[in-house]
Design a protein around this nucleic acid. Sequence first.
DNA 1: GAATACCCAG
DNA 2: CTGGGTATTC
Lengths: 257, 257
Amino acid sequence: MQIATWNVNSLNVRLEHVLAWLEKHPVDALALQETKLTDDKFPRDAIREAGYETVFTGQKTYNGVALLTKTPAEDIAYALPGFEDDHKRVIAATVNGVRVIGVYCPNGQALDSPKFEYKLAWFEALASWLNTELQNHDKLVLTGDFNIAPRPEDTYDPERWEGRILCSPPERAALQTLLDAGLADCWRLFDEREGRHRFTWWDYRNGGWARNAGLRIDHVLATPALVDVCRECKAHVGERGRKRPSDHVPVVAEFDV
Amino acid sequence: MQIATWNVNSLNVRLEHVLAWLEKHPVDALALQETKLTDDKFPRDAIREAGYETVFTGQKTYNGVALLTKTPAEDIAYALPGFEDDHKRVIAATVNGVRVIGVYCPNGQALDSPKFEYKLAWFEALASWLNTELQNHDKLVLTGDFNIAPRPEDTYDPERWEGRILCSPPERAALQTLLDAGLADCWRLFDEREGRHRFTWWDYRNGGWARNAGLRIDHVLATPALVDVCRECKAHVGERGRKRPSDHVPVVAEFDV
DNA sequence: GAATACCCAG
DNA sequence: CTGGGTATTC
C-alpha cells in the first residue's frame, strides 16, 4: 500500500499536475494540503474520472485538505476534536484498514507572532487527538505538511535556519510529542541512502529551487505495525521542476500491507 | 503598403500573440491599443528582434498606444494637441511618406456617464487636430479602436444596440465628422464581399465569441489618395479563437503605395 | 470574462 | 515568486 502527501498550493492551479502524477503513481491514498477551495468548488468529478474518490474540507484562500483514495474512505473526520475553528487543516479516514490522517499544520509565521502561539496550541490539540486515534488503530499514518523541519540536516543551511521558524525548539518538541505518542518518521528509515534528495519544499522566492535551498517539512509518520513493513519513503523532487509547480513536492511511503 | 490596428488588451499578456501574428503578417505598420504598460516596461527589445521598431506612450492599467513599423517612424506625436490629459490614447508618425495616426478612443461607459461627455470632447479635439494634419499630409491613415460601430449592420443585434453606447447618434456624428473632414472607412470599400466576417470585437462575457455577438468598432480611415489604391481591408477573425485572446482582432488594410 | 492594482500570506 | 481576495474597467 502506498500513501502520499502533497501540499499543492491551490488545487485549482495544480489539478492537472495532480492527475498527471496520479496516472504515473497510482498510490492508494493521497493527502492534499492547501487546496484553497470551498467544498462547492472541489473538482470531485475530474478526480473521480481519474479513478479516485475524495473526501475534503476546504475554505476560501487559505488551508483546505483532501484525501484521495482508490478504495472507499470510512469513518471520516473533518477536524481536530475540541479545536473546531475556521481553519480547515485536518481530514482523516480509514482506508483499507489503515487510519490515514492528513494535516496541514500552521506555519506560525515568526516566533514572536500570535500565529506561533496558535501553531503550538494546534499541535497540542493534534497530539491529544492522536492519542485517542492510536487507541483505536494499530495501523495509522499521520501525514501532511507539518511546517517543521525535524533536524538541522533537514534544512539546506542549518546555520541560517536553526532556532528560526520551522526549526525552533518548541516546534521540534511539538513534533517529538507526536513521535513519542507512538509514531516514527518513515523518511528516516532510509537516511543512509546514497544521493538522496533531502527536501520536500523550496521557497518560490530568491530562486529557492535553482539554489536547492529547500527544507524537509512534509512528513509521513506511522505506527510500528506499518514502520515494520515500510519499504520506501521518498520525495518526488521532479515535480518541483515542472511548469507552474507547487512549492512542495509529493512524499510517498510504501508499506507491505 | 499594409497598415493594421489591434487592441491587444495588455501587451504584457499578448506579446507572444503579436509577435506570432507579425511573423505571418509582416505589415508595414501596426497600431496597438490598450498596451497597459508604462514606457519603462515596454517590450521594445523583443519587438525589435522581430524586425520592428516601436514608438509608444503608455500608462499603468489603462490605455497605452504604440506604433510598430519596419521602417523608421518620423515626426512622432504623442498626444492630441490641446488635450494633454493623462490618458495615453494617441500616437502618430510618418511612415514611408504616409501619416499614420493610431488612436484608442474613449469607451464612454454609458450615455449618462461623465465618461460619455469626455468621449465627445475627446473626439472634438481629435477632429480639430485631424484637420491640421490633413493640411500637411495627402496620404493619411487614422486607425485604431474607435469604440463606435458606424452602422446598424456593424452590430450583431441592431435591435439591442441602436441608440446605446457605441451606437448612439452623438457618437456616430462624431465619427462622421472625421469622415467629413476628408477620410473614408476602408472597410466599406469591400462591403459587398460574400461571406465576410463583420466584426472586430467580441465581448469576453456571455460567450460573445461563441455566439458571434460582435461589433465593428476598430477602423482604418484613409484619405482619398490612399482610398483610391486600397486593395483590401479585413479583420483577422481567427485571432479571437486562440488561447487567451484579446477581445479585439487585428484589422488590416492594404494600399498600393 | 479578462485584464490590472493593491493587499495579504507563505 | 506565486498563490488568493478585493475593487475597477471595458
